Simulated assay, not measured.
Amino acid sequence: MYGYTQDKDKYLNRLRRIEGQVRGLEKMIEEDKYCIDILTQVAAATSALQSVALGLLEDHLGHCVAQATAEGGEVAAAKVREASEAIARLVKS
Rank of each mutant, 00 (worst) to 15 (best):
M28P: 05
H63D: 10
V65I: 03
T46C: 12
G62T: 11
A66G: 12
V22R: 01
Q21C: 02
V75S: 14
L61Q: 09
A70I: 14
E71G: 12
G24C: 00
T40L: 08
G72K: 03
D37P: 07
I38Y: 00
T40W: 10
A70T: 13
V65G: 04
H60R: 08
V75M: 15
L39I: 13
H60G: 06
C64V: 06
A53N: 08
Y34E: 12
S47V: 10
A43W: 12
A48N: 04
S47G: 13
E74V: 11
M28Q: 03
A43F: 11
V22I: 05
Q21A: 00
A44C: 05
A66H: 07
V42Q: 10
I29G: 07
H63A: 09
Q21H: 03
A43Y: 12
T69H: 15
A48M: 00
D32M: 05
H60C: 06
C64G: 07
K33N: 08
T46P: 14
D59Q: 09
A53P: 04
K27R: 11
A70S: 11
L61I: 09
K27H: 05
C35P: 10
Q41D: 09
E71T: 15
D37C: 08
M28K: 03
C35G: 08
G20R: 04
V22Q: 02
C35A: 12
E74N: 10
V22G: 00
R23Q: 08
A53E: 07
L57F: 04
A44G: 07
V75P: 11
V52E: 05
G55E: 07
A43I: 13
V75F: 13
K33Q: 09
K33C: 07
